[in-house]
């Protein structure tokens, strides 16, 4: 069960990987997350989440091209897998379904 469960941060990172296609890598994901959601994460945390996602089979990775600013080192590029896409769709669906069931009145008033 645990393997299929998508945590909130995991979901965000997975979404960002999709957004950044085809150039999603550690620092890029971190920057994008900060820009879009205002959440400032440490790079090691992003790495940890990405590794976890890869273990769950939602993303796969390949080595990219070396760049000057990385001291000649290559990036690890992350891509969504089919399972990853499905997981995102499921999460989105669950969310929409739940959202649509909220009575209108509950959204109109706030206490």
């Amino acid at each position: 069960m645990k393997g299929n469960y998508l945590g909130e941060l995991e979901e965000l990172v997975l979404l960002t990987v999709g957004v950044l296609y085809p150039e999603a890598y550690g620092v890029g994901v971190m920057d994008e997350l900060e820009n879009q959601t205002g959440r400032s994460l440490n790079i090691s945390a992003v790495h940890a989440v990405l590794t976890r996602l890869e273990e769950k089979g939602y993303v796969k990775s390949k080595m990219g091209d070396p760049s000057q600013e990385r001291g000649g080192r290559r990036k690890r590029i992350f891509l969504l897998t089919a399972a990853g896409k499905r997981a995102l769709e499921e999460a989105n669906e669950v969310r929409n379904q739940l959202f649509s069931q909220i009575p209108k009145i509950a959204l109109q008033f706030s206490y």
Binding site: Y25, G26, V27, I43, H47, M63, S67, E69, R70, G71, R73, R74, K75, R76
Partner: peptide, 14 residues
């Protein structure tokens, strides 16, 4: 090592 060090260097350079 390569990606970790690379990321660390990229952030450093920035």
């Amino acid at each position: 090592l390569e990606e970790i060090q690379g990321d660390a260097y990229e952030l450093y350079t920035r």
